[in-house]
Each structure stands twice: as structure tokens, then as C-alpha cells.
Design a protein around this nucleic acid. Structure first.
Length: 644
DNA sequence: CAGGCGATAAACACAT
DNA sequence: TATGTGTTTATCGCCT
């Protein structure tokens, strides 16, 4: 039901909200749930075109940002000297969507034409920028001279050596910043997809995208955007950092003075309005400066004194100019790469896959936390994955697979979390990301709950603590609390792997790891198991670890009444999904879970009839390991069991 | 196509 | 009574 309505709204949104003429006749019927099969690109955008379009949007944004940055560079002097704001020769018309909207352009021009136009524009812009900066520099020099004549020089450091050193440092810093900026741009490129940049003809998205995926995608992207606009630069960068773990662009150490907010143009983010482009978060954002300024007045003062017209400032401007140029070039390259990647991903499975390339994605840069080691379960390539030697390296990303990759089509979260992504390592790697981006984690409720419980030293949590863990760890779960909390409770109750233990203070929930493991490979034996393993990761590794896990988890179970012992044993180490090299870690002794609380009463869930399969399924893989304790049946062994 | 699974919604019972 | 907690049932979509 909800999905229905949601997808409905998605379908109608583009047409109603921005009825851009791009797809006049494509009403909601376009994206059928079952997704029309053939590639009817008539009248609507093909995936490739869409890519071009997105890229163009990104480039436009990039240019705009760069331009803003460029103008921002001149601001010290302008605010300082009350100069009339210098007119930027770069034709704004060219860069702003004012003259011709991307959509119009896109309609008129073919992708290749668009590309050409873009390149032309870029070249032109660079040229103009250069000229502009040259003029600026001349002007600056002139002003500097006059200033010097007026004897108003600051008594600050002036030795040439110092200047050079400082300059070099600043150059480095600026380059780092610019790289960061580039990432920002990339991110915005993705976010821009829905950011109201233009009426995105959603109907034209690849048809493999199901409405629900679209919904998810849009939801996430919008939330990401909100997020990014809400958060300060640090948060943003952390997000980005996690988003591009494999990016070729070396990430600079997070630097508070991101060029992030360097635009004060009206059309820029509103929260930067009324602020100085070189001032943010109480700091001077002059490249390499970071001087703390309490307020704007102080900042202006600082600007006038520390960044007055002098050789250094001029040189920095020059450097910045070059950096901008470099960025433009790099942006073009990255865009190209992105396009190739996206095209490839859209193209899908059958093609020989030059895999390994980190999918630097897409929909929301924020999404891609391509951990190199997550298996792209959701990616449209399970077929190939089986044939192609998927190294133990998990390549795709669960996040993407589940929700953010448009071309993926209907993908279920659970897929990912089965045999693919060790949730713990995944979370460890992308903790910041999930924490800040409202992206739905690609794990099932059960695995999340389990993770929450296992995250604690005691391996037990109250319901409320589980809630808190969810909200703490995932921005996504800060919304719709009623829904997911209900789901959490539902899962706790439903799955046998969650055991409710009553202690003095109330009830806590624990994980019966064995039960959990049992549940994972849903009674797959023989071919199914093998198949899954193969597709998930190396069979042998998995098998070994799986067996190890089971053995491991079953062991304590035998010994200690508190069945939940098993909990920590297996997975914590990362194996939430059987992937890890069976880290038979500890678990045995020392387990804190043996806390007295366990000796309280335990509510045993009713065992479904089918569960008598238990011994069988369990023993199948691990048979070698001794007698298999029967999970649930064991529970009664606990001293204080109190059956409902 | 059937069945399993996960997500979601909702009703209900019980405790605080 | 309201709220939180737990259980259960139903439904839907996706996948095998």
C-alpha cells in the first residue's frame, strides 16, 4: 500500500511539479511497476541521454561554483576597498541556466552535441577566466602599488623566504581543498539529479528502475541534499570521505575550511547568504588562513590586515585561478569516467565486465561508499558474478545495490545482507555515512537488530536501547519512527534468533547466534547453498567460515545454559554473514554475556512446526561438528526458563 | 507458479 | 487513560 502510493507520487511528481515539456505525453504510465521492457527512447530520454543530461547539470553547477569561487576571490578587495564588484567577464549567461535551460538544450541537442557544447563552454570559460584573472592581477598590482605609496602597509611578515614557504603551503592546501571541492561537485552532480535543477523526467529513467526504487532513490537523494545543506562542512566531508573510499582522488585530510560555502550569490545555498564567501564557521577561509574571527566585523578587519593587497595575496589568487582551471579539467575527466561507469552499469550484465573499477556512483555520491569488499548483490550481474571470478573482494556495494543504484532495478535489502556484506565491517567502514546521510541501510531489520545487540559488551539490549542504536547509527531511522519501531518489535518477536530475557530491570533482548545463522541460509542445502556461496563470495571461504561459525556458535551453547552465548562468537568479528574467515574468535570464555542477567527468565518463542527441520538443516553444513544442539530446544534447559 | 522471505501495517494484550 | 512493549496476523513485493 505504501509503496503503491509512494510510487504513485513519484510518478506524478515530475509531471505535476515541473511540467517541463520534455515529456509532455509521458504521464504516469511510463514507469510501470513491472517496468516496460523495451527501450523505447522515442520522446523520452534514454539512459545514456539522461547521463549526459545529468553530467551537464553537474558541469553547470560546477562552473557556477567555480565561478562563484572565482568571484569570491576578488571579494577581499571588493569588500575591502569598496570596489564596485568586479564584473566577471565570463558570460554568466553561458553558465547559468538562465538563457537556455538544460532541459531545452538537452532536447535540442544530441548527447554528443551536448558534450561538444560543454567542452566548448569549458574551454571558453577557462579562457575567460584566465583573462579575467590577469586583469584582476594587474589591477591588484596597481592597487598594491598605490597602497604602498600611501604607506599603509602592514608591518607583518615580509621576508621573501617566508612568503615563499607560506605560499607553497597554501598552494598545497588549496589544492587539497580544491580536490575536496571536486568531490563536492561530484556529489552535487548526483544530488542535482533531483534537486530541482530541472524538471527531471523521471519517467525516462532506465526502465529497470522500479517505482519503489525510484522512490527510494529520490527519498535518499533528497534527504542527502537536505543533509548536505544542513550539515556543516565537516560533516559533509566525512560523508564524502566515506562515499569515495576508493576514489582515485586522494582525499585531503578533512579540513575545516572547505571552499564549500564560498558562494554568496543569490542562487546559491541560502544559508550562506549574507555571509562573506571567505568567512565561515567563525573562520577566515582565505586559503591556508583559518584565522578565527568571532564575527563578521572582526573578519573584515582580519581580511583587511592579513589579506590586503600584496604580492602574496596576488599570488594566491593566481594559484587559485590555476587550481580552478585544473579542477575544470579534472571535473571533465571525472565526469567522463562517471559517465562511462554509469553507462556500463546501465548496460548490464552480459557484457564482459572490466570489473574492479569502483563504481563511483551515481545517484548520490553520498551513497557510494563503495567498500571494495561488499558484494554487489543488488547489481544486475549475479549471473556474471558467478562466472566471472569474483575475488573475495566484494566489489559493489550493498548500499548501492539496495537503493541507490537506479539501474539495479528491484533489489531487496536482504539480498545484500545475506552472505555478502558483513554488516559489522560495513558499518564500521561507513559509520559516519549512515549516521549522517538518510540512506536506508542495506540490511534487514533482523541483521541490524542483531548488530545492535552484538555491539554492546553485554550482548543484550532493551528495546529502547535498540531503538536508540538505530537512531544513533542511522540517520534514516530518525524518521518514521512508528514504522520502523514497529518493524523492530515485529522482528524481535518473530525471529527466533532474538531472545527476550527478563532481568531485574525489565527485559532485554539477546541474540541466539546459532538461530541466526540457521536462519541465514534459509534451508539451502546442496546446489542452492553452493550457488549462493559462489555468487556471494568464494565458496570455500564461505563454507569454511560458515562451518566454523556454526561450530563456534554451537559450542558455547552446549556448555552454558544461557544459550545466547553463541551470540558474540561468530559474528562479531565481522561475519555477520559468514563471510569472514571464520574468526573463531574468543566467544568462548570471557563472554560478558554470561552476565547474571541471563539467569533470569527467558521467554521462548513458539517454535514453528517446520522447525523440526532444525537439526537437519543445521547439521547439514556443520555436521562434522559434534552433536548439534538444538537451538530452541535447548532453551528449556535453562534453569529458569519460563514458558509463556 | 508456488513458496519463502522481508517490510509494513495493524490489531490486540499486557504492563507501567 | 496513555504509553510502551510484545505478539500475532495479514498483505505486498521480490526472489528463488
Amino acid at each position: 500500500m505504501m509503496v503503491e502510493s509512494a510510487s504513485e507520487s513519484i510518478r506524478s511528481t515530475p509531471t505535476s511539479q515541473n511540467g517541463v515539456g520534455s515529456l509532455p505525453n509521458q504521464s504516469e504510465s511510463c514507469v510501470g511497476r513491472e517496468g516496460a521492457g523495451s527501450g523505447d527512447t522515442n520522446g523520452e530520454l534514454s539512459p545514456a541521454e539522461l547521463l549526459h543530461f545529468q553530467q551537464q547539470q553537474a558541469l553547470q553547477m560546477a562552473r557556477q561554483l567555480l565561478l562563484q569561487q572565482a568571484t569570491g576571490l576578488s571579494s577581499p578587495s571588493s569588500t575591502d576597498n569598496k570596489q564596485p564588484s568586479v564584473q566577471v567577464p565570463v558570460s554568466v549567461a553561458m553558465m547559468s541556466p538562465g538563457m537556455i535551460t538544460p532541459q531545452q538544450m538537452q532536447q535540442i541537442l544530441s548527447p554528443t552535441q551536448l558534450q561538444a557544447v560543454l567542452q566548448q563552454q569549458q574551454a571558453l570559460m577557462l579562457q575567460q577566466l584566465q583573462e579575467y584573472y590577469k586583469k584582476q592581477q594587474e589591477q591588484l598590482h596597481l592597487q598594491l602599488l598605490s597602497q604602498q605609496q600611501a604607506g599603509k602597509q602592514q608591518p607583518k611578515e615580509s621576508s621573501l623566504g617566508n612568503k615563499q614557504l607560506a605560499f607553497q603551503q597554501q598552494l598545497l592546501q588549496m589544492q587539497q581543498l580544491q580536490q575536496q571541492h571536486l568531490l563536492n561537485l561530484q556529489r552535487q552532480n548526483l544530488v542535482g539529479l533531483q534537486s530541482g535543477q530541472g524538471p527531471l523526467p523521471i519517467q525516462s529513467l532506465p526502465q529497470a528502475v522500479s517505482p519503489s526504487d525510484l522512490q527510494q532513490l529520490l527519498k535518499e537523494m533528497s534527504s542527502n541534499q537536505e543533509e548536505s545543506s544542513k550539515q556543516d562542512t565537516v560533516d559533509l566531508t566525512t560523508s564524502i570521505t566515506t562515499s569515495f573510499p576508493n576514489s582515485k582522488v586522494s582525499l585531503p585530510t578533512i579540513h575545516p575550511s572547505l571552499p564549500n560555502g564560498q558562494n554568496t550569490r543569490r542562487d546559491s545555498m541560502s544559508h550562506y547568504e549574507s555571509s562573506h564567501p571567505l568567512y565561515g564557521h567563525g573562520e577566515c577561509r582565505w586559503p591556508g588562513c583559518e584565522a578565527l574571527c568571532e564575527d563578521m566585523g572582526q573578519f573584515i578587519k582580519h581580511l583587511n590586515t592579513e589579506h590586503a593587497l600584496d604580492d602574496r595575496s596576488t599570488a594566491q589568487c593566481r594559484v587559485q585561478m590555476q587550481v580552478v582551471q585544473q579542477l575544470e579539467i579534472q571535473l571533465a575527466k571525472e565526469s567522463e569516467r562517471l559517465q562511462a561507469m554509469m553507462t556500463h552499469l546501465h548496460m548490464r550484465p552480459s557484457e564482459p565486465k572490466p570489473f574492479s573499477q569502483p563504481l563511483n556512483l551515481v545517484s548520490s555520491a553520498s551513497h557510494n561508499k563503495m567498500s571494495p569488499d561488499t558484494f554487489p548483490d543488488g547489481l544486475p550481474q549475479p549471473p556474471t558474478s558467478a562466472t566471472a571470478p569474483i575475488t573475495p573482494l566484494r566489489q559493489g556495494t550493498s548500499v548501492i545495490s539496495s537503493s541507490s543504484l537506479p539501474s539495479v532495478g528491484p533489489v531487496r535489502r536482504r539480498i545484500v545482507d545475506k552472505f555478502s556484506t558483513p554488516i559489522s565491517s560495513e558499518l564500521a567502514q561507513n559509520h559516519e555515512f549512515y549516521k549522517n546521510a538518510e540512506v536506508r541501510p542495506p540490511f534487514t531489520y533482523a541483521s541490524l537488530i542483531r548488530q545492535a545487540i552484538l555491539d554492546t559488551p553485554d550482548r543484550q539490549l532493551t528495546l529502547n536501547e535498540i531503538y536508540n542504536w538505530f537512531t544513533r547509527m542511522f540517520a534514516y531511522f530518525r524518521r518514521n519512527t512508528a514504522t520502523w519501531k514497529n518493524a523492530v518489535r515485529h522482528n524481535l518477536s518473530l525471529h527466533k534468533c532474538f531472545v527476550r530475557v527478563e532481568n531485574v530491570k525489565g527485559a532485554v533482548w539477546t541474540v541466539d547466534e546459532l538461530e541466526y545463522q540457521k536462519r541465514r541460509p534459509p534451508k539451502m542445502t546442496g546446489p542452492t547453498l553452493v550457488k549462493n556461496m559462489i555468487s556471494g563470495l568464494g565458496y570455500s571461504a564461505l563454507n569454511a567460515s560458515y562451518q566454523a561459525a556454526l561450530a563456534e556458535s554451537s559450542f558455547p551453547l552446549l556448555n552454558s545454559p544461557p544459550l545466547h552465548n553463541s551470540s558474540g562468537s561468530v559474528l562479531h568479528g565481522g561475519h555477520d554473514d559468514v563471510t569472514s574467515t571464520g574468526e573463531p574468535g574468543n566467544s568462548n570464555g570471557s563472554s560478558p554475556r554470561l552476565s547474571p542477567q541471563y539467569s533470569q527468565s527467558i521467554h521462548v518463542k513458539e517454535e514453528p512446526a517446520e522447525d523440526d527441520v532444525r537439526p537437519a538443516s543445521l547439521s547439514a553444513p556443520t555436521n562434522q561438528t559434534t552433536v548439534l544442539p538444538e537451538d530452541r530446544d535447548i532453551e528449556p534447559e535453562t534453569p529458569m526458563e519460563d514458558l509463556p
